[in-house]
Nucleic acid binder design. Structure first.
Lengths: 149, 149
DNA sequence: GTATGTGCAAACTTTTTGCTTTTTG
DNA sequence: CAAAAAGCAAAAAGTTTGCACATAC
């Protein structure tokens, strides 16, 4: 049962709203936070049991192209997907041991200003059309600080 | 023929300096810049023909643990390796279409200052022991700006 | 000589693709 | 009904692992 919320958005771009797409959108919308394709597959099967993993990948790819979802790669061999929130821009704090990812949004004003300057410079110097950036910190989370040496 | 340069470094840590390790070190040292395991494999085979891809992976992993090499993930499904240079810290500008990666080091002073502040805050707030960060910009390079829409 | 490292091939994991059937508009 | 999407299974692509043989110290 395709929800009404995104219908227009899809139609405009020549895509169809379908059961699987609605179910996937629902999951990334509710369970936001760095989900792997498999996380999403697992979760979506609860509301849409017949779905296949290929549909998960194809749909996430579509959502990324539509700007509904952001795709990240923190290392570890799996891509991570996150609903494109209308809320505050944020970055990530990644534990190198357990892979846990924490969002943060400190000093965003200063950051935004600096990022703007860098973007302008890079645009000019390297002729890149920049549309996004990613600032991630890597380290060990509280519990992994003991375990690992 | 294992070079003398890194011998001590290896011995200290209970590792042995071997032909393959020397050859790999040589390649990442000379051809610096975001190499994939396969790039390195291809290159190393010129000076050490019998080498296997497994050795490349195992050795790069060792080098990462030893701090000789940094491992990155820009998306695209391949890990990238870069010699841990004593030179200026830098970040990356990644083309989302062709995967080309350009280094940049603009505004590093301002950046360093900001990064320090954020690190301190994150350390305190989330109890993470941060040891590195990565700031990457994504966009389309000159030639891909036409090709892709 | 013994522990460590290597090569090879097989295994694993994540992601993609081909093709037939199903569904949407 | 025609075009787009889904399901399934097979294939790719990248990386890891097991094991017998080779090498460093």
């Amino acid at each position: 049962m395709p929800g009404p919320r995104w219908r227009g958005n899809f139609k405009e771009r020549g895509h169809r709203m379908t059961g699987p797409r609605d179910a996937i959108l629902d999951v990334v919308n509710k369970k936001q936070g760095h989900l792997t394709a498999d996380d999403i597959f697992f979760e979506v099967r609860k509301s849409y049991p017949g779905i296949g993993i290929a549909t998960i990948y194809r749909t996430l790819d579509l959502f990324v192209r539509m700007g509904l979802v952001n795709k990240f790669d923190f290392g570890g061999g799996k891509s991570r997907y996150e609903f494109t929130s209308k809320e505050k821009h944020h970055h990530h704090l990644v534990c190198k041991n357990c892979g846990r990812v924490v969002d943060y949004d400190s000093f965003l004003d200063e950051e935004t200003e600096l990022i703007k300057k860098i973007e302008a410079e890079l645009n000019r110097k390297h002729d890149f059309k920049i549309d996004s950036h990613q600032l991630d910190f890597y380290g060990l989370c509280k519990s992994c600080q003991r375990e690992v040496k």
